[in-house]
Design a protein around this nucleic acid. Structure first.
Length: 425
RNA sequence: GGAGAGAUGGCAGAGUGGUUGAAUGCGGCGGUCUUGAAAACCGUUGUGGGUUAUGCUCACCGGGGGUUCGAAUCCCUCUCUCUCCGCCA
């Protein structure tokens, strides 16, 4: 959520940000409601102030055993007026809050202005020793190889759950588990994170806190009966761990890493883009979440990306880093880097991680603050998160990159101690 | 799922309709004392909103709603915690 005071003070800056993000400019609506709100508030408060003093008078009179009926009768009508005005104010505030909930975060000044993913900027790429973009003769894509080596079973996944649900079998399942454990251990050992294993169903308030609700309701699985949502990312439960809290400055930065399954309805996305692991309804992800002091958040963003990159370098999987342009930025993000891994069979880059700085946008919604050590003032934290990484797309690149000409799969060296075997097939 | 108890400021814990934003204790911060520290003593110590304000004012005692001139206090409802019973990986 944006700061209403900021919108009031710098409406043109907000307007420009919304336009760059391909969003509807609703600044004037906000300003009008804000104006109405303040007008009504002032009037209502004047009445309330009067009520408070007069009611105290009544108390004093009664204490002395005197009659206060005439004042009470007068106050009765004041109470009615207050009720009426409170109701009007409530309506205005509801409209305003609702509107603010749908207004996205503004892009940071360092974000390139652009409409679509075409205008994202490649910041750098990393290719392992001896890597070539030339496609190997007879290379199988991950789906074919998964079937051949009895690692993956999309057909049976569709049978037991529906299309877009994968089953890992045998050494495929072991490899997946190894990958998750390797990534968690790597971040814990080398990057100073604290591990979290959170619930995968969360309430509505948490979804609002990180910005998934109200806007993306249709993209999520919901348990109607219990008013719970299946998390689309560990960002939701982990960031909301500190919902409503005031942290100490000395507690920052908070660095969490956690594994969860992630659930996405992916409403309306079908076709060849969704083959095999390229788009699924459930996948595994190791997520990094940071709560930091505002002045450090952009340095922390760079670190976050670096942490994710380190995993890919250890796995020796080629990747590139994109800085998203304003139009491609997600609802809550002020700045975001995507990490894409190379898929030889698809002959293209696949998004395997997204690292974002939300500044205080989520912190406002989730009301996460910290108390400064020097002047004791409270301030919103900045929140960040990044995948480190999602296994499904990573598995595509891994299976294709580590495939031998005979159609076997070499287990990346760093995973071998986790799998207990070094080749599949 | 059934029965009961509870939810108050950083923590502990009073308060059951009238200067209570909230006693008291602990903690925190500032000060006196001290070579320094501790102890003792004194002071101070919640969050948010409105207002061209060295000020004034409103809201907040788990969430929401109600009764009343007036609610932390009474009523309804939801959530959560604890105890007992049932069920259960």
């Amino acid at each position: 959520m944006l700061d209403i005071k900021f919108i009031r003070e710098f409406p043109e800056q907000v307007r420009a940000g919304l336009i760059n993000k391909n969003e509807k400019d609703r600044v004037d609506e906000v300003l009008e409601l804000d104006k109405q709100r303040r007008e009504n508030l002032t009037k209502t408060e004047e009445l309330k102030a009067r009520r408070n003093t007069v009611s105290q008078e009544v108390g004093k009179l009664k204490a002395k055993g005197e009659n206060a009926d005439h004042i009470i009768a007068e106050m009765k009508s004041v109470a009615d007026q207050i009720k009426e005005m409170d109701e009007r104010l409530r309506e205005i505030e509801e409209k305003l809050t609702n509107l603010l909930m749908y207004i996205p975060n503004l892009p940071h000044s360092s974000v390139p202005v652009g409409k679509t993913a075409e205008e994202n900027i490649e910041v750098r790429r990393w290719l392992p020793e001896g890597f070539s973009f030339d496609k190997q003769e007879g290379l199988l894509d991950h789906k074919e190889l998964g079937k051949k080596l009895s690692m993956l079973d999309f057909d049976r996944g569709a049978k037991i759950s529906g299309s877009g649900f994968a089953v890992y079998t045998g050494r495929g399942a072991t490899l997946e588990r190894a990958l998750i454990n390797f990534m968690l251990d790597f971040h814990l050992k080398n990057h100073g994170y604290t591990e979290i294993l959170p619930p995968m169903l969360v309430n509505k308030n948490s979804m609002i806190g990180t910005g998934q609700l109200p806007k993306m309701e249709d993209d999520m699985y919901k348990m109607e009966r219990d008013e719970l949502y299946a998390i689309p990312t560990a960002e939701v439960p982990i960031t909301n761990l500190h919902n409503g809290e005031i942290l100490n400055e000395s507690d920052l930065p908070v660095n969490y890493v956690g594994y969860t399954a992630c659930f996405r309805r992916e409403a309306g996305s079908h076709g060849k883009e969704s083959k095999g692991f390229l788009r699924v309804h459930q996948f595994n992800k190791v997520e990094m979440v940071k709560l930091v002091k505002p002045e450090t958040s952009y340095d922390e963003l760079e670190k976050l990306v670096g942490n994710a990159e380190a995993i890919l370098q250890a796995l020796k999987i080629p990747y590139r880093i994109l800085m998203l342009c304003s139009g491609d930025l997600s609802f809550s993000a002020a700045k975001c880097y995507d990490i894409e891994t190379w898929s030889p069979a698809e002959n293209r880059w696949l998004e395997a991680s997204s690292c974002s700085n939300f500044e205080n946008f989520q912190a406002r919604r989730a009301n996460i603050r910290f108390r400064k050590t020097d002047d004791k003032k409270v301030e919103f934290v900045h929140t960040l998160n990044g995948s480190g990484l999602a296994t499904s797309r990573l598995m595509v690149s891994l299976m294709e990159t580590y495939q031998t000409p005979e159609g076997k799969l070499i287990v990346p060296e760093v995973l071998q101690k986790y799998t207990g075997f070094n080749v599949i097939g």
